[in-house]
C-alpha cells in the first residue's frame, strides 16, 4: 500500500477557514486513500470538515498531509494545491 506524506506551509491569507476546509474535504473524499492531516500534536481525519477546522491552521502554519492507499500520490497532489493557493 502506498503511503505518502508531505509537509506544507499554509498560504491562504485567512488560513484554513470554513470554505477551504469544505473544499479540502470534498477533494479528499474523491479518493479511496486514507487521509490524515497533522499540525503540532493534533492529528485529524482529512475527510472531516470539523477535523480540518479544529487544526485552526492560519497562514504560515505548517501542516503535514498523509495519504495511504493506491491513489495516495494523486490525492496529495490535489490537496496540496488547495493549501498552497492564496
Amino acid at each position: 500500500m502506498t503511503k505518502v506524506a508531505k509537509q506544507i506551509v499554509v498560504q491562504k491569507k485567512e488560513g484554513l477557514h470554513a470554505r477551504p476546509a469544505a473544499l479540502f474535504v470534498q477533494i479528499a473524499n474523491k479518493f479511496d486513500a486514507k487521509i490524515t492531516v497533522k499540525r503540532d500534536a493534533d492529528e485529524v481525519n482529512g475527510k472531516s470538515i470539523m477535523g480540518i477546522l479544529m487544526l485552526g491552521a492560519e497562514k504560515g502554519s505548517v501542516i503535514i498531509i498523509e495519504a495511504e492507499g493506491k491513489d495516495a500520490q494523486q490525492a496529495i497532489k490535489e490537496l496540496e494545491k488547495i493549501v498552497e493557493s492564496e
Binding site: 485567512e14 488560513g15 484554513l16 477557514h17 470554513a18 470538515i49 470539523m50 477535523g51 477546522l53 479544529m54 487544526l55 485552526g56 492560519e58
Partner: peptide, 9 residues
C-alpha cells in the same frame, strides 16, 4: 474568527 471555528470544532 479562525480560532473560534477551531475551538468550536
Amino acid at each position: 474568527h479562525l480560532k473560534a471555528l477551531a475551538r468550536i470544532s
